[in-house]
Design a protein around this nucleic acid. Sequence first.
DNA 1: CAGTGAGCGAGCTTCCGCTTGACTT
Length: 781
Amino acid sequence: MSTPRNLVIVESPHKAKTIEKFLGPDYKVMSSAGHIRDLKKHSFSIDVEKDFAPVYVIPDDKTQLVSELKKAARQADMVWLASDEDREGEAIAWHLYEVLGLKPEKTRRIVFHEITKNAILHAIANPRGIDLGRVDAQQARRVLDRIVGFELSPVLWKRLKPSLSAGRVQSVAVRLIVERELEIRNFVSEPYYRVFGYFTAAEGPAFKAELSKRFATAAEAHEFLESCAGANFTIGEITVKPMRKSPAPPFTTSTLQQEAARKLGFSVSQTMMIAQKLYENGHITYMRTDSVNLSQEAVADMSREITEKLGERYLHVRQFHTSSKGAQEAHEAIRPTYISRETLDEGTDREKKLYSLIRKRALASQMADAEVEKTTVEIAVSGRPEQFTATGEVLKFDGFLRMYLESHEDEVLDETGADGRLPILRHGEALNYRDITAIERFTQHPPRYTEASLVKKMEELGIGRPSTYAPTISTIQQREYVVRGEKEGTPRDFETMTLADGKITEAVRTENTGSDRGKLVPTDIGMIVNDFLTEYFPDILDYNFTARIEERFDDIAEGKLPWSEEIAQFYKLFHPAVEGALSHKTGPKFGERILGTDPETGHPVSVKIGRFGPVVQIGETESDEKPRFASLRKDQSIQDITLEEALKLFEFPRTLGTFEDKDVTVAIGRFGPYVRHDGKFASIPADIAPGELTLDEAVRLIEDKRREEASRVLKSFDQEGTTQILNGRYGPYIVHDKKNYKIPKSITTPAELTLEQVMEIVKASDEAPAKPRRASSRRKK
DNA sequence: CAGTGAGCGAGCTTCCGCTTGACTT
């Protein structure tokens, strides 16, 4: 077998495989699997004194790959660096050139934005050199992010809490969430009344209309209904307007994440994992992209598909242009690789659903506008200045809607029923009312961010990249700056008044309000870290910081200024701010609140962020007496905890008395209140207040727990309990050597298993190939 | 997935963007 004379290096192994097929036996295609070199992971690795010289290393998990690339490069007559045409891709090409020790005459830099044979052949026919300007811009980006992250984070460790982190992207993401929460907190919801009427004309069914005016009070609404009782209703102006709706562009990473969340309920990281699978299996193009562009081949295929399946009338070839800040458009939009594949017959359910969403969105983008006829009818009320308005929409031509309907984040349930068809109505025609209802509504605070809407906002601000949206969202949750809300909300009454047959009846109905379930909510730590950073580093936390710095990177790319100069200018302002923030101030800790004094000891009581999170402290650290500490419960907040609530936290641990000659104590632990006795623990159920727990109740809990433990052991094979069959929350399972094993479904009477059978299951399970770990699993430290 | 339960005197922690595997609690 002769060795190919050409080596092509791309970023993704899957891309390499595809391309190799296009290029024939003269070409070997390998991949770098992303960056092959970076700043050291655990050290600053930037020499501030020497023009910010970066110390690059090849990470351990890349050394083997790099040596393979080196070997292949030596054997080739020509090496084609085919990393992506964006800033990072250019840097990857340069690192490859440096690390592999390539020679200029044996190296070419090529780029393509689509994985099609033509695009690649065209690229090979039109090589260029490495764009060092762009490489420098990347180095500046990299160095800046390292400086910001590695200088800010230690400030947080010293002033607030160890292991915290800050960065150009994550800190701004947290800020968005914190500020939204403050808006919500300060929002005062006002009630108002909307009025809906159902009317009938001479012919046809009743139709719905809404009063153009909203009333501020129940009295005004009532008065209006009263005057309706004896009023005449007459059709006023009728306007008929043709309208067109256009399809959305095909998916980018960000829009895919948003729509998959709304339409399929996927989290941002789930979407990316599923998309990765689809990509690896060759079903879709690359899933980390900011481009809405489609290759000519793809457009041609889609045109054919639309014309064949739906007819010429449905086709409308369009070119979309990206509007998002900082887009680098190294790839195509996300689309199916074979558009005629309507559904997948392999893969998981979720893969199939996501594929179909991607396909429909891509196809719809090349389809005709939908045509709608919108009719607006005004209805006058005699003796009143207010008017009702009825709207009807008739779809004249469905166009792209046949394929795909985009959904919107803040979709308010439309209570006007606007999409219905109105009966035939004439100007001046008299109407009868069937019923008219005034409903109390409340003004709404702005919505909390979801993962998906946060990604949308970040993209608008140009913060983060397609490859980092999902990781950033999990970082800010791992640091516990932000949690997904769990509050179910509370019921709220609202009034309704209905006029029918000349009589007004009133009723009170109930709705749920204030739920933050699944939404992103800042924690105490998130709030205080944000306050701290915005106070000391307002420039970095500015929503436009990234956009501004991107302009500087553009200057660097154009060669207007050496990158180290640019960084030096930044550092001159930034570093003193770091020193300032570090300079230790005496007095209360940042974000600390003094609640008052402890009536028993007279010592000050305060709440703040402690080593392990929010904590109440009685007494001062400097005093001779040791201060006492107690953690806040999960549902309590530094912002609004009262002195009484704080003092209550010190009621535990408390000894209730003795049982069987051993102390019975009640305490609050990491997982809620519990009773402790003789080295054993029993949780206190949520419906018993731990403060009011009596010794009798505690003993009962201990006995319950003993019973539960006794029934937990189905069978024990030895005294020490190294091998047992236990009854768990999810049915029986085996414990052997402190590891848990699943009992195969085929065994219906697990209590009758023999030791031999148990050991067989253990052995089989130990030898089984490791199951892929669910990436969504949150790592508890 | 399978059960937990402290303390504020260890040492370590940390960034953003490219990209995939490796691997038990």
